[in-house]
Design a binder for these strands. Structure first.
Length: 580
RNA sequence: GCGCUCGUAGCUCAGUUGGAUAGAGCAAUGGUUUCCUAAACCAUAGGUCGCAGGUUCGAUCCCUGCCGGGCGCACCA
């Protein structure tokens, strides 16, 4: 189905052509939902911008558009206001008919705009043998949400987890593993301690450091025993990552892993390809590329090193190889990188290199989805009291414990198991929602009390709106799946504004997709919940003397809100509960 | 120094492609309600949208300069 805004857009576009001619067929009618009910339900702002082009004043232009507009079955009336705003008042019947269509659609009215398109989303990317920490939260959560949104819109989404599984640090890690007497059944209980222990020894024990360096050579040389130990580290780390992903509700599996080492044998080919493209140059013994537009401190062209003077490759080389793989082997239309904003320049250089090498096929889009830092109350990067990085697992555990405390206090009628299950969903949901709900490019301040609060733009507030609806159906002993949307009547203001809000779901999801900003969906879901709470307050469903037809209407409306909330939260990677 | 980015109410944040009187939550004040519920809802108050120019019928939004914070600037990732 087409959402209302799209329908009005085409009606207005036709009216503009009828009034002023074919040359204005591409003029955007600038339809948007009205902020204030006195300005109608939607508004068209095109008259002002069109006035100069057609050589008339905006109000006359608006009048001509209105005269040529087919109100169809949607328009109650149009009003011209202010400098030339056209305010659209909709028929209540029309709103109901749209709700019926949304309710009957498994995608809640969203067109499958991604059909026949393949997209890679590169996110999470933890390092082997290192504990996942708060720094991995954002990439994992934002990337996962974007993947879900694009999937919902019909894109074929290829998730790629670019594990850091290669580099000189593996020498010390493998030596440390040997010294700890690794056998096939060994498990590394604590990756953080293991990594720090190896690093400590590397710094303190020259003999160990020496062995570590030799071990790097053995690893790069393909020594069998070394590779076996290296694989061991990877397998152990994957257990840890998968555990974290499961708790966090992030849809990454072993199948999504394309680690750095996957590209090892393609690296010489990248250098050759750069040479063939005429991009490879030499500087101070290293092989470099000069992406256009980048300058160093002295204003000279700023190079990106792809081959070190000692013959080794760098992460830039690997990133170039990965991008070539995604374009040439996976053959996707779009590649999205979800990393923190400190890597903005790095990706800009990678993308520029591809552009000037003519390696980007027609119609292929590259995006860097950058995000800011998680800050503590002191406005410095979030750390533990002792100054350590915060383990992702600890963060999740604390979120669940804190949620459990709140529930135990307020819902002691629930069984212990129920409370635990709810705390799991609400705690993790709160953690994720706090990360997703503000503009990703900005840093945000981490605050347990705020993210777990039932008030404001939080996961508990949204989940609570869902729970209240479930509670109505439970109390009425009815199944939300059995409501009849055709019975919806919008007599009360709160019902009407809730209906209007419901119809904006598709626009919100598309906005999140086109901007790659999940917070736009959060803002919408918060407004929907808020709108529902107003309705809930003003419009009793089961209580007292509510007429049967009014009850059926409100049940149908509530059921659709619940479905929209659940679907929307799911696109954020957040679950719901039936009670809380 | 160069580049990127952020600056909106006391605090934490929204603000659609440039549209009407810049919106929420917390904190403050007053009210309604006390379960359909993890206690919400309504109202009041709170703003030099960092500063100064420019473009425009119209700028929180686009452009330029400045101020302030964060980050990045070749053989680590």
């Amino acid at each position: 189905m087409q959402d209302p805004q799209t329908q009005f857009r085409s009606a207005f576009s036709d009216a503009i052509v009828a009034a002023f001619g074919d040359q204005y067929a591409d003029a955007d009618p600038l339809i948007q939902s009205s902020r204030n009910p006195e300005f109608g339900d939607y508004q068209a702002n095109v008259a002002m911008s069109l006035a100069k082009k057609v050589g008339d004043n905006p109000r006359n232009v608006a009048t001509k558009i209105v005269e040529n507009l087919d109100l169809g079955d949607w328009g109650e009336k149009l009003q011209i206001a202010g400098p030339g705003f056209i305010n659209i008042h909709l028929k209540l019947n029309y709103l109901v008919s749209q709700l019926v269509e949304v309710a009957g659609d498994e995608h809640l009215g969203l067109e499958q705009i991604g059909k026949d398109q393949k997209v890679v989303i590169d996110y999470s990317g933890p390092n082997v043998a290192k504990e996942m920490h708060v720094g991995h939260l954002r990439s994992s959560v934002i990337g996962d949400s974007l993947a879900r949104v694009m999937d919902f819109l019909g894109y074929q989404v290829i998730r790629q987890n670019h594990l850091g599984d290669w580099g000189t640090q593996f020498g010390m890690l493998i030596e440390n593993l040997i010294d700890e007497g690794a056998v096939a059944s060994t498990h590394i209980a604590d990756l953080k301690t293991f990594y720090q222990g190896a690093k400590q020894r590397f710094d303190d024990e020259p003999e160990f450091a020496d062995r570590a360096r030799k071990r790097v050579v053995a690893l790069q040389g393909g020594d069998e025993q070394t590779l076996e130990l290296w694989s061991k580290l990877i397998e152990e780390s994957k257990l840890h990552f998968n555990h974290a992903y499961k708790l966090l509700g992030v849809q990454l599996t072993d199948d999504d892993i394309r680690a750095e080492s996957f590209y090892n044998d393609q690296l010489p080919g990248v250098i050759q390809a750069l040479e063939d493209a005429g991009q490879l140059q030499e500087s101070q013994g290293a092989k470099v590329v000069y992406p256009q537009g980048f300058k160093d401190a002295d204003g000279n062209p700023f190079p990106m090193i792809v081959l070190k003077s000692d013959g080794g490759f760098l992460y830039a080389t690997t990133d170039l190889a990965a991008l070539r793989y995604r374009i040439n082997e996976l053959k996707v239309n779009r590649i999205i990188y979800v990393t923190d904003s400190r890597q903005t320049q790095h990706f800009a250089m990678i993308f520029k290199t591809f552009e000037q090498s003519n390696w980007i096929p027609q119609g292929v889009k590259l995006d860097h989805v950058a995000f800011g830092t998680v800050l503590g109350n002191d406005r410095k990067p979030f750390k533990t009291r002792s100054g350590d990085t915060v383990k992702l697992i600890d963060l999740m555990d604390e979120a669940v414990v804190r949620a459990l405390n709140a529930i135990a206090q307020k819902s002691d009628d629930l069984s212990e198991d129920q409370q635990k299950n709810i705390a799991q969903v609400v705690g993790i949901g709160s953690l994720k929602y706090a990360d997703l709900s503000s503009d990703r490019i900005k840093d945000y301040v981490f605050d347990w009390d705020r993210m777990l609060s039932l008030e404001g733009n939080t996961a508990p507030y949204l989940i609570n709106a869902y729970v209240r609806i479930q509670s109505i159906f439970r109390k009425g002993e009815m199944n939300p799946a059995n409501v009849d949307a055709t019975k919806i009547k919008l007599n009360d203001d709160a019902e009407k504004s809730l209906a209007l809000r419901l119809l904006q779901f598709s626009g919100a999801v598309r906005a999140a997709e086109s901007s790659l900003e999940p917070h736009r969906l959060c803002t919408y879901l918060y407004e929907l919940s808020s709108s529902f709470h107003r309705f809930y307050e003003q419009c009793p469903v089961l209580k007292g003397d509510v007429l049967p037809e009014v009850r059926d209407s409100r049940l149908a409306l509530s059921a659709l809100v619940a479905r929209t909330l659940k679907a929307g939260l799911n696109l954020l990677g957040i679950d719901v509960v039936e009670r809380m």
